[in-house]
Amino acid sequence: MRIAVYERYGPPEVVHLQEAAEPVPGATEVLVRVEASTVGASDAAGRNGTPRFARLFFGLTTPKHPVLGSDFAGVIERVGDGVTRFAPGDRVFGTLAPAMGAHAELVTIAEDAAIARIPERLTAAEAVATVDGFLTALPFLRDVAAVTPGQVVLVNGASGTVGSAAVQLARHFGATVVGVCGPANAPLVASLGADPVIDYTGEDFTEARGAYDVVFDAVGKRSFRAARRSLTAHGIYLTTVPSAAILVQWPVTRWFSRGRRAAIAFTGLRDIRLKAAELALLVELIEAGEFVPVIDRTVAFDDIAEAHRRVDTGHKAGSVVIAMSPADERAKVTPAASASETRATR
């Protein structure tokens, strides 16, 4: 089988394909022939070795996880003797996180881990595009912020992988959602349920006073200090990006503040049993038409460096998907269908 590897930190070109031995599933594992995976911000950080604290996980001087990628979608090729939930031929999707290794044509995963059958209406590319954003945004909004109906939730970076999922989930929880993005992606964000949509090139959302119950900075571009006055008296600021400031503000405001708070959650490190339950919820929402995939583009596995280049721009809308099969003509580097088109055909 082919895998995408890198031996040193650097630009997208350090990632290349090579042959590797096929993995063998254990007694309670399944072997998945991967049809689609994704390249996300964590993969780009791991490849580049920046910010520097990322090397605490990826390796201080050289990469210790030579195969990146956590999310996958494909078809089960073989199962272990003790597997009861799945059978060969099942279409499945899920995540290996916090482990990596999904940028490969075959992966193994325990049957009780974060793996589920792909909803009938989705392709493998569409299914894998939902995983990272959903499993990141859900704990922030449901568990940390405890979003309830009638609240106002602002999502900064609302067109990205996590941001687009956050818009849909906040809407599902009954909140009024304000999306912040560039003008090109405003129609997409509006189609996901944000109203209004703020163009960050012409308006600074932090200039509002006491407007938002939750500010979810899904791209780590605005600080708690900058966003603080835009929060209601007991509002909460959330960010996905670790920094020295937030690592201090998080416990201090949690334990000592009776007003506005700041928080971060390390969603990728959570117990696999939690992720498995959340993946089941994702399937329910997809089948109910309440959650749709957002794909920036689909790139052939042979061109994985191009996927990394796209992520490095910081301007993708939704997920950058890798199609593993070289024969798949849909795997050319072209933008995929928008979420608004997906909603129109569901």
Score class of each variant (00 low, 15 high):
E29T: 06
G210I: 01
A113R: 15
I118M: 09
R55W: 07
T201H: 15
A73S: 15
Q168Y: 05
G101W: 11
F256K: 05
F140W: 04
A208W: 13
P242I: 00
T62H: 15
H308P: 07
R121A: 08
A146V: 11
A226P: 08
V189Q: 06
V320M: 03
G49E: 04
G80L: 02
A170E: 11
S338M: 02
S223D: 11
A73N: 13
V177A: 01
T313S: 10
A146L: 09
I198S: 09
I109N: 10
V155H: 09
L192R: 08
A102S: 15
A170R: 08
S164V: 00
V147A: 01
A27S: 15
V180I: 01
R121F: 05
Q18D: 12
A208Q: 14
F224N: 05
A194F: 10
S319A: 14
A102V: 03
V34N: 06
P196V: 01
P63N: 00
G10S: 07
E329P: 06
A262F: 06
V144I: 07
T136Y: 09
T61L: 12
A317T: 15
V252F: 14
V321R: 07
T334V: 15
I264M: 05
V219Q: 13
A245M: 05
E35W: 12
S191K: 04
G235S: 01
T130G: 08
S164I: 00
Y200T: 02
T253M: 03
A99D: 15
P187S: 01
V321G: 11
L238H: 10
A102W: 13
Y212I: 01
L192H: 10
V252I: 13
L106C: 02
G26C: 02
H16D: 04
R297T: 12
A36K: 12
G150E: 10
A218E: 08
A21I: 04
A54I: 14
E77N: 08
D143W: 07
A331M: 02
R33M: 03
L279W: 11
G163I: 00
A186R: 14
V321I: 12
D71I: 01
Y9L: 00
L238M: 06
T130C: 15
E19P: 08
S191G: 06
G101P: 13
H308A: 02
G89T: 05
D112H: 12
V75F: 05
H234P: 00
R260S: 03
P25W: 00
H172P: 03
V299L: 02
S159C: 04
H65W: 13
L56Q: 10
A307C: 07
E306L: 06
P119L: 00
D271S: 07
I322L: 13
V107S: 06
R142S: 12
R2M: 09
A307L: 07
I246S: 00
V34A: 02
R171D: 13
R121V: 07
Q18E: 15
L231N: 10
G10H: 09
I264Y: 04
I304F: 03
R8Q: 14
H172Q: 15
L68A: 12
V92Y: 09
A45N: 15
A277T: 09
R258F: 04
G82M: 04
A226F: 07
L247V: 04
A54C: 08
R2S: 08
